[in-house]
Write a protein that binds this DNA or RNA. Structure first.
Lengths: 322, 322
DNA sequence: CCCTCTTATGCTCAAGATAAGCATAAGGTC
DNA sequence: GACCTTATGCTTATCTTGAGCATAAGAGGG
């Protein structure tokens, strides 16, 4: 073993991506960054009083936002920013990101916490009504970038763009949210890329590149989105976001909002039914605008029974944009 | 913000689970623990010279074992041991585990590194020829434990055992390797549970509980196994373990060894074929013991093309032990 | 060379799961 | 009552999957 000096002590930053559904939109809890320059995810350093990492996350979030956390899982540990080495070698920060899902609660109006729609940060990820308008300019600029960089070091670059964004005969894969953000970062199409270099970011308002975030927080959020989109298919995490009882359409809308795709209604119901993930409460939802729907609740036992209890979803219009 | 003292500096331990295939068996690289008390995964503290976390892992592994790493991915970050609070608050260690897959290479014989068959650590996980003999005693003792703890705080405990180990009409789910290890730990059936408490572990040799490891390293290995078993189904990671060219049977045997299940031969080939994950080299394998098999190689392009290019596998005898 | 053993490979068939849509039910509004 | 909206049941064509039969092509022994 070499001397003590070689071992770098690190500050451990705990960062939380807290997701909820509000008015049918997936939202993330975003506070002001310490320097007020941008929005940030709630976070704080691991402290001696924290008994576990999770406890630390819960504590910081409660302190900063008043939000109590239920479901929580570890997302990823970041040691550097987009592969760059850290600035000060003997005082590094590693940051451990957690994903938390909280239920909307009944009183959406009285909840004054700073929730933000997640598609404000990722406008190109919302394909519920076809490819969104933000895609156009982004894809055009990605194409330019690919042509330029393509000749040099990455001959498959254009192909990669197409695959990642579902162009040609590649279907759109909603789970690749992180890949897409990283590609946009690489292509210098998100403001964070410029500011990480130390450049002044061109502050184009209402950018197709979406609302930027402090530090690498938007990347962490993209990681969370990819994780959620993958996980709802094989674990019943969707129900963490639902109220105690709900209609199947509400459930479907939530699945659609999270995955950013629209689903076939009847097939969705069949899927839920045959996995017996829910049971009827016996009550009816009023005010659905049409025939009243039966209210259902999540069957907690399902977590145990099923090998992969999740909402296997498939887009109605599967795929393949021209 | 509170005073500086509240922020605990941490030593960051980097731990590597390095997997390869040797003689058709999945193996893990295991060194002697610092105190020689048990086998351990290669690991070392993050140092100031390490530019990134990954670089730190690579560097320690090479120093300790001479093994160079190719494919590498982050596994999990552990801040405590099995949920227990850390001993000394102002000097905590968090440990970041990585998974690396390395290709066997052509000269298995000349590789003197300390590879260990992973089923030596998890004898109950190898279901290639039915439920292994180690299962019997373990299940019996798990049953006893469940009966005892069941009355008190966990009425569903017996059910949970059955689901986790695939008893009754629940099929065996090979991906639940981590859950199973954690259940055995909880039930005090692995030596690590006793030694974490400070007790002397009863050193029964040739235990059905498998070979123990230093600290929580066996838990980390279980995490890796679960991850691999899940991932080979949707990403072409299996090929990281294969030589440049191989036969389909070799590939199948590797998939079987990793997942711990035996697969239907013709269906396995169909699956690989229809995903066009491999292409023929034109050569034939000699010495297969029967009709010579065509040699194939992995099609790297497949990584891009396919939405989920992996070896979707399903056990021949799916399931349901009596 | 024939018989037998081993592995490779092609093909079929029945079940089960999925994608899409038709049709009907049951509320509300004018 | 006509018409709109959402809920829910059911059908059909297609794919996918699990399982197994059958044949091919090598080796070795007689």
């Amino acid at each position: 073993m070499s001397g003590y000096d070689d071992i770098s002590r690190a500050t451990v930053e705990l960062t939380a991506v807290i997701i909820t559904m509000r008015d049918g939109e997936p939202c993330v809890l975003a506070v002001d960054a310490p320097d007020r320059s941008a929005l940030a995810l709630p976070s704080g350093p691991l402290q001696s009083g924290h008994r576990t990492l999770q406890a630390g996350v819960r504590s910081w979030v409660e302190k900063q936002t008043g939000q109590e956390l239920g479901y929580i899982e570890q997302l990823y540990t970041f040691g550097d920013r987009h592969g760059r080495a850290l600035a000060v070698p003997h005082h590094r920060t590693i940051s451990i990101a957690y994903l938390a899902l909280v239920c909307a609660g009944d009183d959406v109006a009285s909840d004054t916490r700073p929730w933000r729609r997640w598609y404000a940060f990722f406008p190109w990820e919302d394909h519920r009504s076809g490819r969104p308008s933000a895609s156009g300019p982004l894809l055009r600029r990605l194409g330019q970038w690919a042509r330029k960089s393509g000749r040099l070091n990455d001959p498959d670059c254009r192909e990669r763009v197409g695959l990642t964004f579902g162009i040609g005969d590649t279907p759109w894969d909603e789970e690749r949210a992180l890949e897409r953000y990283e590609m946009l970062y690489e292509a210098d199409l998100v403001p964070e890329a410029a500011s990480d270099r130390g450049d002044e970011a061109p502050t184009t308002k209402s950018n197709p590149a979406g609302v930027p975030m402090f530090s690498d927080h938007r990347r962490i959020l993209a990681t969370a989105i990819s994780r959620i989109r993958a996980k709802i298919k094989y674990r019943p995490v969707l129900f963490e976001l639902m109220p105690a009882s709900f209609t199947l359409l509400q459930l479907q809308k939530a699945a659609e909002a999270l995955s950013g795709m629209s689903l076939h209604k009847q097939n969705f119901r069949r899927l839920i039914a045959q996995q017996s993930l829910v049971e009827e409460t016996g009550e009816l939802a009023i005010d659905t605008g049409g025939r009243p729907a039966k209210l259902v609740r999540f069957r907690k036992e399902a977590t145990l029974e099923q090998p992969t209890p999740g909402v296997r979803l498939k887009a109605t219009r599967r795929g393949a944009y021209p």
